[in-house]
Amino acid sequence: MDCRTPSAMSKRDRRTDTNDTVQNFLLIWLDTKIDESNNNYLNSIKQLRQTVNAIEIFRDTDKCIDYISELQNEKSFLIICGDLCQSIVPLIHNKVQLYSIYVFPGEQEKYEEWTKNWSKIKGIFSEITQICDSVQQCARQCDEDSIVISAASSLNQIEPSFVYTQLFKEIILEINFDDNKTIKDLVEYACNKYTGNDQQLKIIDEFAREYHGNLDRHNKPI
C-alpha cells in the first residue's frame, strides 16, 4: 500500500509561482507517526506549501528511499523524524537527487553530535518555520551552484587556444602604441615566446612586415 496521503501528494502542474515559493524542488517528509488529522500536522503542511508547493509524505521508509532513488530531474529536500535519522540517513545521504536533510522533530542533545558527520543535514529543528527559512536559503544556493557549474561546463567546451588568442587580440587592440619601437619590442618578445613554433613565427613575421602604424586596420589572426 502506498503510504503517501492524497492531500499531500505533489501537484507539479499546479505549483504556485510566487517570489516566496521555491520552484523546481520537491519536499519529502518521512515520519512513521504522521497523523493527518492532527492540527499541528495540517498547519505544518500549510506553512510548507507556502515555501515548496510540491510535497510528498511517506510513512513507509522503503517506499521513501525508492522514491528518492527514482527521481530524475528534480532536487529534493527531506524532512525526517529524529527516530529514523540514524538508520535512514546513511542509506540516502550520497544520492545526488537529495540536496539537504532536516531532522524534525528531534532531540538536540541526542542527535547534535551525530549529525556533524553528515554534511547534507542542515540541523535539528523544533519549528516548521525554521525549516521553511532554511529551505529557501538552500534552494537559492543550489540554483547559484547550478548556474556556476553550467557556465563552467560551457566554457570548458571552448577550445582553449581560441580563448587565449581572442584575449591576446583584445589586449593588443587596447594598447596605445606611440611609435614603431613599441611594435619592434612586441615582435621581439613574441618571437622569443614562440621559439621553435614555425607556424606562429611565420604569423609574427607577417605581422611585423605588414604593420603600418595603425593596428586597427590589421585583421590577420595572431
Score class of each variant (00 low, 15 high):
Ile204Val: 12
Cys3Glu: 14
Tyr111Ser: 07
Val187Glu: 07
Thr18Cys: 06
Phe104Lys: 06
Ser7Gly: 13
Met1Trp: 00
Lys120Tyr: 03
Ile45Val: 13
Arg4Glu: 11
Asn197Pro: 05
Asp60Trp: 02
Ala152Thr: 03
Gln47Pro: 00
Gln137Ser: 03
Asp133Gly: 06
Asn24Arg: 06
Asp205Phe: 08
Asn73Ile: 01
Glu36Gln: 05
Ala8Thr: 12
Asn53Lys: 03
Ser100Ile: 01
His93Asp: 08
Leu91Arg: 13
Cys132Pro: 01
Pro105Tyr: 08
Ile147Leu: 07
Gln157Asp: 10
Gln166Ser: 15
Ser37Asn: 13
Glu127Asp: 05
Gly123Ile: 07
Val187Lys: 12
Arg49Ile: 04
Cys85Trp: 00
Glu109Ile: 11
Asn219Trp: 03
Gly213Ile: 05
Ala190Ile: 08
Lys181Ile: 11
Ser37Gly: 14
Leu48Val: 07
Lys95Cys: 04
Asn73Lys: 05
Asn176Ile: 06
Leu201Lys: 11
Cys142Lys: 13
Asn39Gln: 15
Asp143Pro: 03
Gln200Lys: 15
Glu144Asn: 12
Tyr41Ser: 10
Ser76Tyr: 04
Leu173Cys: 05
Phe168Arg: 09
Lys202Cys: 07
Phe58Trp: 04
Lys95Phe: 08
Asp31Ala: 10
Cys85His: 01
Asp66Asn: 15
Glu144Ile: 06
Arg59Pro: 02
Asn117Lys: 13
Glu174Gln: 11
Cys142Leu: 13
Gln50Lys: 14
